[in-house]
Nucleic acid binder design. Structure first.
Lengths: 226, 226
DNA sequence: CGCGGTGTTGAGACCTGTCAAGACGTGTGG
DNA sequence: CCACACGTCTTGACAGGTCTCAACACCGCG
């Protein structure tokens, strides 16, 4: 179950057997959440982190993501995290992560790195919101998710499940639902991509990337010693 | 010189004598940059990080900020960093930071925490760009800088130096320079804040915070064990 | 069958961008 | 000292992207 997480790590860093074993020993519990459940409330004191195994959570967290790894050092979040779909998560107590920082410096750097990648994605969104039109932002989101879901093994030939409603999608993009609707129509009209029945189908990836001015540098997909 | 950085750390975490000594031993060099110099180019391979001691750098880095601490694990940046003013920095080789992760787990968690705070600030900006008007965004920027510069000892009674031109400010806020100009006039007209001669003067902080819907939770100013 | 959530469409308003021009200040060279 | 260039700030008129409000269609579900 946790393999999707290891896949995500290994897209950016090598993980040796000892490290893998430690990672696999991190969770103490597996918990399921119903759709629309508030999983983490902002301000709430945290002593554990949440590794998403199945389902989607707000802020576009997908399987394999450590949705509140930053909570390990922040000790509380300044935003809520909501289960967009029914979800299954692995619970990792902060004590274990603290132990990691004591015993596995390299793994610590790797997880530190992962939170920095999350931050880089948010920086890119900030740029996107400031400088791009709704069409380009939407296109970029589709491109980014195609890559991230591809790593998780959840995207095939430009098709992937996308469980957000247009209202939720609008919140992600800083738009209104009405404008999201019109933007989606425009993307379909141009033959780039379609979103129907909670599923994205990319017809013309190069053209979509061009509209989005997509450059995957900010996803840090190259392996380097960390 | 590095005291401004320690002040920033101590606003959020206790630092003991041994840790302080190690922090003070981190830099190997002090370097000056001229105004408008590109300090770090995106994509460039990094083996050192840059601790800003004096001056401002792009993305609103102020004295005390580790402008590319995330570069320690990312190994390259996806954006440039430019000296907005003449700057003085301390250079910290990644080897030393690597050593920190081996020998000082608590300090590692604290610096990890600091990059997560930077990320939280960017998340807040993302929200801001998506949901707030130009007026509210500008107001929030002034509020945030008042707090951050206050910690650095560079703000007094709501007055602080602010070296950005309106063009640069526009880039930060995702606006045009023309609209920044009009927004500044509106803020002044309302008696909230003024920006003249590269200096911000806040007349009515509570009202400014109200316009900005400012809540400093995302700056994580409370001390907790990390 | 009715209801709520979701998706779709239209009309008009508003915020912000674009383009263009001028004012002001500062430093440089003659 | 003046003339000039340049960056920055300011203002105006207009265009365009996005929002708001409202209404309606569709659909799964109780």
């Amino acid at each position: 179950m946790i393999d999707v997480h290891l896949r995500k790590l290994r897209a950016r860093s090598d993980i040796n057997a000892e490290e893998e074993q430690f990672i696999r020993s991190l969770p103490t519990d597996i918990v399921d959440y119903q759709q629309d459940r508030t999983v983490i409330r902002h301000g709430q004191e945290l002593n554990q982190s949440t590794l998403l195994l199945e389902g989607w959570m707000a802020e576009l967290n997908i399987p394999g993501d450590f949705v509140d790894l930053h909570g390990f050092t922040l000790k509380r979040l300044d935003h809520d995290i909501i289960a967009i779909t029914r979800c299954r998560v692995a619970v990792v107590p902060h004590d274990r992560l603290g132990e990691m920082t004591e015993r596995f410096p390299r793994l610590t750097r790797i997880y530190w790195f992962m939170t920095n990648v999350d931050a880089a994605i948010h920086r890119e969104w900030t740029l996107s919101l400031g400088r791009r039109t709704a069409l380009a932002r939407m296109a970029q989101l589709m491109c980014e998710l195609n890559v991230r879901l591809g790593i998780a093994g959840l995207s095939e030939e430009g098709c992937y499940d996308f469980p957000l409603t247009q209202v939720e999608l609008a919140e992600c993009l800083g738009l209104t639902a009405v404008h999201v609707n019109r933007t989606l129509q425009e993307l379909r009209r141009r033959g780039l991509v379609d979103l129907q029945n909670r599923r994205v189908t990319i017809f013309d990836l190069p053209a979509l990337e061009a509209v989005a001015e997509f450059d995957d540098a900010y996803l840090y997909l190259d392996k380097r010693p960390r």
